[in-house]
């Protein structure tokens, strides 16, 4: 198998250039998917027979919740790659993931709580998904806290990578334990959407919104990672060349 692409991706100038080319694509596609998804979700999809119009928040809530977990997985994978292959670019990607992931988590929590108001009559219910999201937010905050507490970038990279890997092993366990805990205290959960029960008119916009969120995540991650690479390589010669290309 040819690994040259992998090693080339590890070189900061190459990554900077490739990422710069990919950002507009992801951003535009994310925009298109978001517009069609929102039109489909807010305009075309019928109101839910039980929840009325209130359910439409899932078009933001569910993608945000999915992306909050995905961002952690991406962060841990990048951190692992950085730790094993000593790849500085991978550490930069991991570092860029945390704030975005924390933001998705916060959005999922906020929309979940807003949704809870009409559904449960309260802004906060100890629903397993919301509780897991909350723990995930703490994991992100811990990761960012550890990074902020270490001055040396290389050391911060490695230490936070170990934490991210420990966290990613723990994440399914936390998720399972919270589900298990909830099943003892509550019979069912309102946030559960059976895939089979959802009509295509709702499912298609939801999938479009998930696509939009994923593409947006990719775009914003690459923008942030480029900034992070620039910050780390600020003394390197290739930067003046890269900036010289496009004055």
């Amino acid at each position: 198998m040819n690994w040259i692409w992998f090693h080339r991706l590890g070189s900061p100038p190459h990554f900077f250039r490739i990422a710069g080319k990919m950002v507009p694509w992801f951003a535009w596609l994310a925009g298109i998917a978001a517009v069609t998804g929102l039109v489909g979700g807010l305009g075309l999809a019928p109101p839910d027979y039980q929840q009325g119009e209130g359910y439409r928040i899932i078009f933001v809530h569910v993608p945000a919740a999915v992306l909050s977990t995905l961002a952690y997985a991406v962060m841990a994978s990048a951190a692992g790659v950085g730790l094993i292959w000593r790849m500085n670019v991978a550490h930069a990607v991991a570092a860029s993931c945390a704030a975005v992931g924390a933001w998705f988590t916060l959005v999922a929590l906020a929309t979940g709580s807003l949704w809870g108001r009409p559904m449960w009559g309260t802004y906060w219910e100890w629903d397993p998904r919301l509780t897991s999201e909350l723990v995930l937010l703490f994991l992100y905050l811990g990761y960012m806290g550890l990074r902020g507490a270490i001055d040396d970038t290389a050391r911060a990279d490695r230490a936070s990578a170990v934490l991210a890997l420990v966290g990613v092993i723990n994440l399914p366990i936390i998720h399972y334990s919270v589900d298990w805990w909830n099943s003892l205290h509550q019979g069912h959960t309102l946030l559960k959407f059976g895939k089979a029960s959802m009509p295509p008119s709702m499912l298609v916009p939801l999938l479009l919104m998930m696509l939009a969120f994923t593409l947006y995540f990719a775009a914003i991650l690459l923008v942030r990672a480029r900034g992070e690479v620039l910050r780390r390589e600020r003394n390197a010669r290739w930067i003046s060349e890269a900036i010289g290309e496009r004055p």
């Binding site: 723990v135 905050l141 811990g142 420990v166 966290g167 723990n170 936390i174 399972y176 334990s177 805990w181």
Partner: peptide, 19 residues
């Protein structure tokens, strides 16, 4: 910071232990 790092990881132990 130690508390912030360890407490979320300890959630499963807390749940199963308390139960």
């Amino acid at each position: 910071l130690l508390a912030l790092l360890v407490l979320p990881l300890a959630v499963p132990v807390l749940i199963f232990g308390a139960r």
